[in-house]
Design a protein around this nucleic acid. Structure first.
Lengths: 173, 173, 173, 173
DNA sequence: TTTT
DNA sequence: TTTT
């Protein structure tokens, strides 16, 4: 319950291969896959463009793992939020080895398929729990005064009370 | 369960005043407070150091709200993770007004007290707890009725351009 | 330079309309648009699925604004990272009004177009600077052996030499 | 400039030891330290409280590294934002080993000291500074050569299964 | 309204 | 190895 510290990883990248889903004795699913994130930049010395791909080992638990097994595959672009965990194991020779993974738990973790139309474009959150929290409840927003149907709201962009952008002063950015 | 989109706010800042905690008819707590984040930079033109403080309206629901009421106060440095919500309300003249808040729900939200020694330095997460209650049905009597006594709730209820928390209907935000 | 506090917003959502790009007297670009994030959940009381869309006003400065004007449009799914800023303005009647926006600055801000193939799928970061850090792509992992079909692989938790995401091929995808 | 993917780590935790700061041939600083994040939860089966500490290897480059060397030490609580990088190295027997680190670059990275009063409570960001230098060309002599004296650099260079920071080639991270 |  |  009480935590001391924040351990959060946010990735947007593409799967390097189809998720591999296994089931634990208690029936819970575990999915493993790798996600690539790439960045490119111009080398200021040489002036040439360089780029680099980083591969992340991802482990998904619970309902999200089942969803991963069903809906995402090699190449799928995903948004995911998890935490870093380094686990120790032993290689053939009995030597300690360490592997760092991005772990997505049902609580606090997120996995969302990106891309438009073609993809299912749904995110799956804390799926397994008692998602008991009515998200109504909460404060701000919608419900009532939605003069527009809930989905596909074509950009409200209010007319009247539009805040002007003052371009003529010294405000920072 | 299935979401399309990510709506995430992460703040580290100090409370501008003690949290104001209220209880909804179903017993769920709601805490309100403001958090300041500051940044300073050197003005490239003038060379002088400038700085700016941003104030964020924060609303916390559920168990985290109770914890907020108990453990954090004016000046406390916190880490928090929530989501943006803009709610519509009407001012005295009946005009539509909008207020954007950072909402911290038991699921997916995080509130952590920072700083060592002096502070309790614990974070409170949705953890594994059953926080299944619906948080609908918010009661009437805005600033007033705290059915459960709570420290540090000076019920300031700001004056003029301040959006009221309407507890008297079920379409609150 | 030195900041006290973190003020960070991360959104994944779709543009409600084409960005509106303007230029400041000094030639810097500013782009405005709205981004929708949606979430749906099952109401635990009624059992029905509900959903809600939140609209975020986004303001992009500098080179990212130009890129926004060029490459994204109504409906584009984006990842963005910025900070919250509430600015004060006055309506026709001279009353103070406040509007909260997600501001994406060239430094620290990020704007990335999501979606595969069809989209340009590039992110634009701190474009202006020299990213001087050498970055050779180390690939950890993946590829090869999916010994099991994607779903329902009924094999539990690997035993001993457990890191084994099969490092046996270095050509990710 | 153009990136495809997001690779972001956010940690709040305490340093396990004083940062070890070294300088590259071009004068740029590199700081290494570990950060602990802890979480505790109630085991649903047994009902007992359990907790777990995760250790993260952090590498800081540039001005932030110098600041780290000066202002943070064993026990300091920090907020940091960086990216995951896994680098390959070879152990004594010539076997490939992989180590994953959280890398904080001047651009896009953040390091902030938390806690009030006792601590300096400032964050150091890429801010507006010119931090254009290339971080390539790292020199040889791993732990050793600190051309600029630096407090708190006990040059521990861990024993056995510890990944060396190879400063003698250009494929460091 | 906070903090440094 | 930190912190509470």
């Amino acid at each position: 319950m009480a935590n001391r510290g924040i351990n959060k990883v946010i990735l947007v990248g593409n799967l390097g291969q189809d998720p591999e889903v296994r089931y634990m004795p208690n029936g819970n699913a575990v999915a493993n896959f790798s996600v690539a994130t790439s960045e490119s930049w111009k080398d200021k010395q040489t002036g040439e463009t360089r780029d680099r791909t980083e591969w992340h080992r991802v482990v998904v638990f619970g309902k999200l793992a089942e969803i991963a097994g069903e809906y995402i595959k090699k190449g799928t672009q995903v948004y995911l939020e998890g935490q870093l965990q380094t686990r120790k194991w032993q290689d053939q020779s009995g030597q300690d080895r360490y592997t760092t993974e991005v772990v997505i738990n049902p609580i606090g973790g997120t996995l969302q398929i990106l891309g438009s139309r073609g993809n299912s474009n749904d995110s799956y959150d804390d799926g397994s729990q008692n998602w008991g929290q009515s998200a109504n409840n909460i404060s701000s927003a919608p419900a009532a005064s939605s003069r527009q149907p809930n989905k596909n709201a074509p950009a409200p962009q209010p007319k009247a009370p539009e805040p002007p952008m003052d371009f003529d002063d010294d405000i920072p950015f």
